[in-house]
Every structure is written in structure tokens, then in C-alpha cells.
Nucleic acid binder design. Structure first.
Lengths: 344, 344
DNA sequence: AACGGTTATGCAATCGATTGCGCAAACTTG
DNA sequence: CAAGTTTGCGCAATCGATTGCATAACCGTT
């Protein structure tokens, strides 16, 4: 492998000092160099196919032009879109991303944060599942720019980007309510996960607004956001409250599990029971009966978090709001119908 | 942000020279330093919470401990698993990955390769879709270690990891054949994509082995690996060759499109027609009737490619085979049945 | 005690860029 | 035309680590 050409090579070639070459190639300070010299240097740089060594740059400037992106697990379908959203903003700015998977494991997360710091990342975008994330809060306090995604940060002064979970739950609740449903159970996510709690709280809020007594509510908490838990909890709901005509699920996978359980037990969706999801994950339209759900803009969430981080890295931390709430929208398919009672 | 502690800090603290500190902290050369001094230095390093600056390390050693991972699009569900497979091997070795999405765009790919080189990656894992990839071949020839994934490399001496597409097609063909199908159409992928061509060639080979005349074969080529193309080509197949009882599709998404088209037109799968896929992507078991497909081990493919690259980076390029073929397996669900003719 | 041979450590260059400072030449001004 | 100012570029330090070579101290040997 032939060595890459360096400033020194260009300096030798053009007969000037490396510092002159450095300045001539920097649009910022090109002004202080004679045009004639600049041209000569640019020509040589072109001819020798000069490409700046970013590692040397990083060492000197203490700026790696690299960010860390921490996600629970890239194989979880919501994260690839987020990652691309981040990339769409950061790449044009010259930043590269090192993506790490925490697997929701705090020790691992701590280690990964350390290796990101060792690599001198200029900032971190942290998408959490757990509600608390002491590790990332700590590095943020050390002064490393951090933006979190999908998680409301109570503890610290870290900017966060979240989806309007409350509005989503409200909209889908109202969709069910207006279809005539009054016995609406909530298949909640794990309350130690940020989205699990937020959505459950939103459910409590909207039911209260509609005058439903809290004691009458049927809420079943899943241990994980998985189909199996959706099945289990649906069974629990239906045996505890057979009058239930609609299950408002905290996410699509729980909803798919719910539908699956119903199908297996001869309960038809939506004829016998209406079921809704949250997230609008891919391929949902291929799975019958077509889940009505809340669409959240993953790509845009990633892009927005990246924009905030970029602003901080650009020295305008004062311009970034502590809270950014992204709008959600209903995605109506076929899993909601009028309640079975009023059908006859 | 308080400055990180450096070797110099430890040297000052312990009264020795930085070179001594460097050696004491390096397990390789610790031997040449008095145990007593080593202990003193390690204690100080511990106390000051020393963490080596990888950027300085990289500059001096000309080794960034970073690899580039080039994929078409992380939101395409097969890639996250590959990425995690790579990570599972590289992270324990101290390597981080910069993941870039090429979008199958050659110009973009070229740019991305340059930025990876600027960042001094030690090697690249390149998962292609297109059969030819002149850009990556060029950098490989410049001496940068490259391993490709999912793509048989004809042009150059680049190690590649592929799945046993031939065996997969053969197995699923035989499954259909043994179920009694004789009119088996092939819904092919785009022949300019590596997997598209490979699978079509495998189809040709196995049908030839079974004594089917090439002129009698019904093959329809999709323009993209998408449901819509699956629908379009299925329609074409069924109007051209209504006697078709089975469609062997080049991948799952085409197969889902095929099923969708059939369902919409009142053709029942598997009762009226058998349809098979390839890849075994996630959530397939939730989509009726349950696609019978070929399972390929994405995670393992990534891990294997990473192992090869690691070996090269370790200076044992001679030990890596030019070709690695990973086994595939059948995943039988419910989209295959006996042909409708023989059912009566 | 002198000598050759280890051994542990220091010195300084190096990786490739950036940048404050200084200096000489060119220019302006009265 | 002398004095002061500006301009254009070079010098050298710096970022934080690694490493070949030099050297001083210590060892045993005769």
C-alpha cells in the first residue's frame, strides 16, 4: 500500500513550509496567503491526490468528527430508521457515527460509553429503553454533549426528543370510543421502560378525561414488548374482564400477540374484538386483519436528535430546547370495528 | 470538562519518564521494567483513572482499530443481523465499526469509501447487492483489507462469504417436486443483483438435473426485491402459464407479494398454489399462511466475515480462504401443499 | 579493582496535522 | 525618505502516544 500523501509531501513539492500548505488548504485562513501560492499548492494537492489525515486532525484539534449512537439493539426494527435519520443529518456535516448496541444491559452500556470516550467521540445520541440511565447522565455531566431519544429525562439537563405518546394514545382511544367501545382494556408495556410508562400514563389520563373510574379500568402489564407477552396478557384480560370489546395495546408486537391469541381461541378481530397497536412497524399491512395503530416517525426522530446534537457541537447549546416532542398520526387499517354488542 | 489524564500526568506523578510509563502499561513490554516501578505506575494510572487516548495511538501506530462496514441499507431487515454478527466478533477484539449505507448507489459508495479511508479504517466489510463493485475492488488493490459478504467476487482476489444459495434453491425445489409439483415457475430476483442471478442459475441447474427442458421453464424476473414486484410477476406468470402449481420465489418479499396477489385474485395458497420464499426474514410466522422458505444465517455470515477480516488484520491473510460458503436450511411452514390437480 | 555485559530507564524523534509568534519584505504615510 | 504598519510566510511547539537508541547503574568474573 503506497503511503498517502501528506502536507509535508505537498510542501516539498511546492517549496513552501507545511504550515503554509495547511493554511492554503483551509478555506478559513486562505485569505492570509497569496493567491498565486494558494493556486500552486492546490494544484499540487490535486495532482498528488492529497486527502487530509483525519486522525492527525483529531489529535491536534481534539475533535474526532465522530459521534456515538447508542441503541438497545439494531435488530429491533424501530432502530434502523432512527439510525438512518441520524446519518441523514450527520453525514453531510462530515460526522461519522459509531453505533453500539447496549442490549439494555447497564454494565455493557457503561463499558460502551467508555470505549466511545476513548475514541474521542464529540457527542452521543442515546436512545434508551429504560427510564433511568445513570451512566449516560454521568458522562453528560462531565461535559460530553448528549441528546437522548425516546426517553423523557427527568434527572438532568439533557435535551431529549420524544414522540407525542400522549397524543397517540389519546387519538387511538378516541377512535375506539367513537366506534362505540366503552370496555377498553389497556395492554400496557413494562412500566420500567420509558414508553411503557408514558403510554400507560396517557391511557390513565384520557380515560379519566372521559369520566371512566380508575378502579374500573382493565390494565395488564407485559414484561417485555413481545408477541408472547401480548398473548399472555390478552388471555389474562379476557378471563378477568370478558366484557372487553377493545384492547388498546402499548405497541404493535403486543397487539400482534393479542390478535394471535384471539385468532387461536376463536375470537375474531375485528368482528368480536378491536385491537390497536403503536409504532406502525414494517410489514404490518401484510399481517391480517391489518393493525390499526399509531404511526411514529422514527427517521424524523433520529434526524431531529441529530440536528440538536449538531447544534450543540457547533457551539450553540443555548439554542437547543430541553424538550422536543414529535407529532404522531393514526394509521387506520382493519383491526377496529364497532363493538360486538351493538352489532346486532 | 476536565481534561483526561495522559501518560505525561502519570509520569509527573510517579517521577519517571513518559516512555517508562508507556512501557509499564503495555503488557507486551512490561518485562523490561522493574516490578516495583510497574506497580507504582499502575497504581497511579488507576488512581488518576487513566484511559489511553486511542487517537494518539492510531496516529503513531497507523492503526485505527476501526473497520468500515458497508451495507446497502440498514433498514433492509437482513442487515441488522449481519451487523450484529460482525460486532459480536470485532468488539471483543477492540475494534469499532463505522457503518455506512450505500443505497446501492455507486457514486455514493465511492464517496463513502473515501471517507472511510480518510478515517483510517483498518479494513472494510462490504456487503454488496450489485454483482460488480469496481470501487471496492480498487481499494482492495491498493492494499486495504477487504472482505465481501453475500457476493461472489469474480474479478479480484478478495475473500468472500456467501450463503449456499445453490443448495437452498435445490432443497426447496426438491421439496416442491416431492410434493408432486411439476409446473414450478421461478419468480426470479433482478439478475444484476448477485443473489438474483445466483438463485436463478441454481434454479436452472436443478431443473436441468430433473430433466426439465429449459424452454419449458417459466421464469419471471423482478426489477426489485419488493412485494409490488412479486405481485406483478405473479400475475405475469399465471397469465402466461395458468398450469403453474408452484412459484419458487427468489426471496421472501417477492413471495409475500406473490401470496398477496393470489389472495386478492381468489387463488388460495397453499390449496390452489404453493409458494416459497428465501431468507426467512422476521415476522414471517405472523403472516398467513406461513411462508415456507430457506433460512440463511445472517448473524453467522456477519460473524464469519468479521473473523476472516480479523485474521487478515492480524497478519494471517494467508490463512483465509478465498471462498466461504455458509450452509442454509429449510424452514417449513404452510405455504406448500400438494398440487391442486392431484388433490381431487 | 578493572572490565565486559546486562538491565532498567531516559532521551528524542515520530505519526500528520494546526497555530501562536516572529520576522523580513513590502507598503503606507507625513 | 525615515518611521510605522501591514502582509505573507516560516519556525517551532503541540496534540498523546510509541519506540530505537543512548546511557548510567549494577552485576559477576577474573
Amino acid at each position: 500500500m503506497t503511503r498517502r500523501t501528506t502536507l509535508k509531501d505537498i510542501a516539498r513539492e511546492t517549496g513552501v513550509h507545511v504550515s503554509t500548505v495547511s493554511r492554503a488548504l483551509d478555506p478559513q485562513k486562505r485569505g492570509s496567503i497569496t493567491e498565486e501560492v494558494v493556486d500552486k499548492i492546490r494544484e499540487a494537492a490535486e495532482r498528488l491526490d492529497y486527502r487530509p489525515n483525519r486522525i492527525a486532525f483529531s489529535l491536534r484539534k481534539q475533535k474526532s468528527m465522530t459521534i456515538g449512537v447508542m441503541i438497545p439493539d439494531i435488530t429491533n426494527m424501530i432502530f434502523p430508521a432512527i439510525v438512518r435519520g441520524i446519518e441523514s443529518v450527520m453525514e453531510p456535516l462530515g460526522y461519522a457515527a459509531i453505533i453500539v448496541n447496549t442490549d439494555g444491559n447497564s454494565d455493557r452500556e457503561k463499558r460502551l460509553i467508555e470505549t466511545l470516550q476513548d475514541r474521542g467521540v464529540d457527542g452521543i445520541i442515546h436512545t434508551a429503553v429504560l427510564r433511568s440511565a445513570p451512566n449516560i447522565v454521568e458522562v453528560a455531566h462531565q461535559g460530553l454533549p448528549v441528546v437522548t431519544l425516546n426517553r423523557k429525562v427527568e434527572e438532568a439537563d439533557i435535551p431529549y426528543v420524544i414522540n407525542d405518546e400522549e397524543a397517540g394514545i389519546r387519538q387511538i382511544f378516541e377512535l375506539l370510543y367513537q366506534a362505540g367501545h366503552r370496555n377498553i382494556a389497556h395492554l400496557s408495556g413494562p412500566p420500567d421502560l420509558s414508553t411503557g410508562l408514558l403510554r400507560q400514563q396517557a391511557f390513565l389520563a384520557v380515560t379519566a378525561d372521559y369520566g371512566m373510574a380508575r378502579d374500573d379500568l382493565v390494565i395488564e402489564e407485559a414484561d417485555r414488548f413481545e408477541e408472547a407477552e401480548g398473548r399472555r396478557c390478552t388471555q389474562a384480560i379476557l378471563s378477568r374482564a370478558p366484557e372487553t370489546t377493545a384492547v388498546l395495546c402499548a405497541n404493535d408486537r403486543l397487539a400482534l400477540g393479542a390478535i394471535d391469541h384471539c385468532t387461536r381461541t376463536g375470537v375474531k378481530c375485528p368482528a368480536d374484538i378491536s385491537i390497536t397497536g403503536f409504532n406502525d412497524m414494517a410489514f404490518l399491512d401484510l399481517i391480517p386483519p391489518g393493525l390499526t395503530t399509531v404511526r411514529i416517525e422514527q427517521f424524523e426522530a433520529g434526524a431531529q436528535a441529530a440536528r440538536l446534537l449538531a447544534k450543540i457541537l457547533d457551539g450553540h447549546a443555548d439554542q437547543v430546547p430541553r424538550e422536543t416532542v414529535l407529532p404522531v398520526s393514526l394509521k387506520i387499517r382493519n383491526s377496529v370495528a364497532v363493538p360486538r354488542a351493538s352489532k346486532s
